[in-house]
Design a protein around this nucleic acid. Structure first.
Lengths: 211, 211
DNA sequence: TGTACATCAGTGAACGCGCGTTCACTGATGTAC
DNA sequence: TGTACATCAGTGAACGCGCGTTCACTGATGTAC
């Protein structure tokens, strides 16, 4: 019995189960696992199937082709990141200015934190397999979380009126850029805190921009 | 005679030349061309060689393996971007505050402009083939250009002392993030100008950040 | 409750393919005398 | 200037490989009567 075969084949643990039970999900999970380990360009449908304990052709009953599987994985990875950020905010309740600012920082830190912890998943979530079509910024959870925290930040007077309009986009770009540059080895991890602090500073008080 | 064979084989145009003349460079150029057309994960050493009019094995006299060729291409793509930015600054001389600010904007715009124009090359330049080892931020031309312009911006009083320390990193992160999000289809191209303007605003005047 | 049968979700062999790389080779070039 | 020869930079056939996908199949499941 091969190692791969020894993996559980279904939810109920029925050893002789011919049908997997939740193959669709199992393939997705294993695909993400392999992507995170080797990078999206280094994984094969066959490997995913074999690791799940199923023949490669079985996957075609659940996904029309490899690309579909990877797209599903990308979408799921994006949600994983949103979960990760949500967990980071979980214990930071409170309505004090201090609490609000802590939430703002946690949002940025968790964004970069997820990328650092799961670089290949992070790349998958944003790369060509997710971008476009059904991926909508406005409706994504990370975006919504950012909107909410900025709203709070605004309410405690931490956002200068002149900075309000493009605050979301400025912040998202900055944090996303920081995450990417860190993954590329072009910025050290330590830069994330100063960057976030600079953003706070920038939001709080801004003069008029010259022509 | 195949189409590929019809390509010029050397610099002097000698039709019957057995030796190419500058195969190393030709491979590099063609590799970049193909990457830019199909993305780095979709090109093969063989295709590069054939397009240049040479047998696949010939490449091994110039690069130990495919990875080396791609690394060289990545490095070259990065320099292409620097060239692109330099050209953008070329006609923006002058020492007036207005001229300085124009240069600052041009730097950001050309960064995103290059990415937009050559998305796959941009990704190659930053992806896993360039990151790390001999890629040094401090010494890279884009970084040096940014340093210079920020210095100028500082001299005309457009940078609040509190923002000076991390200005470079903040700006690079932001512009890099904007470029990436645009390529991913998560931000429209039009956001680049507001983002740059927000940055200017942010730099110019910043209060103290609360604890 | 038992049986017939349609449907679902697997198997496993096979396909053709293009890939990176190796190897023995050979034509062209440049240098020493 | 001519010749011998080492070196350089190509060729092309071959290697083994793993890939995505297809196909005819079959075991398991669920439903109608």
């Amino acid at each position: 019995m091969s190692l791969a075969r020894a993996l559980p084949k279904n939810r109920t643990g029925d050893k002789s189960a011919y049908h997997h039970g939740d193959l669709s999900d199992a393939l997705l999970v294993e695909a993400k696992r392999l992507v995170n380990k080797y990078g999206v360009e280094n994984i094969s449908l066959r490997q995913v199937a074999v690791n799940v304990g199923v023949s490669p052709s079985a996957a075609y009953h659940h996904f029309p082709d490899k690309e579909s599987l990877l797209k599903a994985a990308a979408k799921s990875a994006f949600e994983d990141m949103a979960d990760f950020q949500e967990r980071a905010l979980q214990d930071l309740n409170g309505i004090s200015a201090l609490a609000v600012r802590r939430r703002f920082r946690a949002l940025g830190q968790s964004y970069v934190g997820f990328a650092k912890k799961n670089p290949h998943l992070f790349r998958l979530a944003f790369g060509p397999y997710c971008a476009g079509e059904d991926m909508n910024r406005e409706e994504s959870r990370p975006w919504q979380m950012l909107l909410a925290v900025l709203q709070e930040l605004d309410e405690i007077g931490d956002i200068h009126p002149g900075m309000r309009a493009y605050a979301e986009i400025l912040i998202w770009s900055t944090i996303h850029g920081t995450a990417n540059l860190i993954l590329d080895g072009l910025l050290p991890v330590e830069t994330v805190d100063p960057v976030i602090q600079s953003l706070e500073l920038a939001l709080k008080s801004a003069g008029k921009v010259a022509k």
